[in-house]
Design a binder for these strands. Structure first.
Lengths: 148, 148
DNA sequence: CGGCAATATAGAAGTTGACTTATATAAGTG
DNA sequence: CACTTATATAAGTCAACTTCTATATTGCCG
């Protein structure tokens, strides 16, 4: 299941919120979700499975308990897809963030190698085309990999 | 249809990318999507409808054409839900962003009202619980508003 | 070991959502 | 005005997702 689809479910989003501050047992998650959404334990377990399989969560066994934690990678990809649109609501901050990134990069470079000329940048600035790959366009040309 | 669900569909994400740089006609969008996903014109039209209805896109009539453009608001909400998780992959930048946000907010306050004590903030800082409302928990206690 | 507690899996059922084809609406064009 | 172009809507089909109940698995404990 694809990242955005995984987040399409409110229960799964809530689960991610619940495990965001650190490991939580399946039972812990289950208790809250059952209270808030009124669904059964197996239902919660399935959602946890989806989160596992899609890489949003990691599990660790502790006796008979399962400790779930967030795996940020897929969330990062989602956030990255969103990034080019940020200029719509935060045009200033976007420029500032770019500036921050630039200065940090330069600092890093100064620490390691000697200062060099601006190396082919990836045009981080605003007003750029938001077109992305990865989370974006799915296997162009191939059809019917979609929910039919 | 909820924001995250809307973005769950790859076609709709692609459409948003296509109209991100400015108005595009239905036909323009359609041509690209048909080429990339191999679906029919009505199918594309339906996706455009979903984007309209969910507030992700706006339309403007121009003769027989319909010009679509991005409406950033829902995207912003999605990005906001994601924000608390940013600390996972960008712990430094997050602190800086918070700082930037704070100073901008204070500047705004100074311009409008007189400077007042910190008004009940929503704990923007990192390490805070990512629990949110709005895009987050949906109508707690109410059940079976979910895809069954 | 027997039994309980914590989770996960299996199979069945209902609903939703994304297509498709056919058709309606409305604006240009000769 | 007839015709074509540009989009949207309607109705029907089909697969997938979510949930439930029932059951399996695995570790803990007396």
């Amino acid at each position: 299941m694809q990242a955005f689809e995984v987040l399409g479910d409110p229960v799964r989003r809530r689960v991610l919120e619940l495990i965001a501050d650190g490991e939580v047992t399946s039972g812990g998650v289950c208790a809250v979700i059952r209270a808030e959404f009124g669904i059964s334990q197996p239902a919660v377990s399935q959602h946890l499975r989806v989160l596992r399989d899609s890489g949003f969560a990691t599990v660790r066994a502790a006796g008979t308990r399962r400790l779930y934690a967030v795996n940020p990678e897929p969330l990062r990809e989602v956030a990255e897809w969103l990034d080019p649109f940020r200029r719509f609501w935060a045009p200033h901050l976007d420029a500032l963030a770019t500036e921050l990134a630039r200065s940090r990069r330069e600092r890093r470079l100064q620490e390691s190698t000697g200062p060099a000329g601006t190396p082919a940048r990836e045009s981080t600035g605003p007003a750029g085309t938001p077109a992305r790959e990865g989370t974006g366009t799915p296997t162009r040309g191939v059809r019917h990999d979609r929910g039919h």
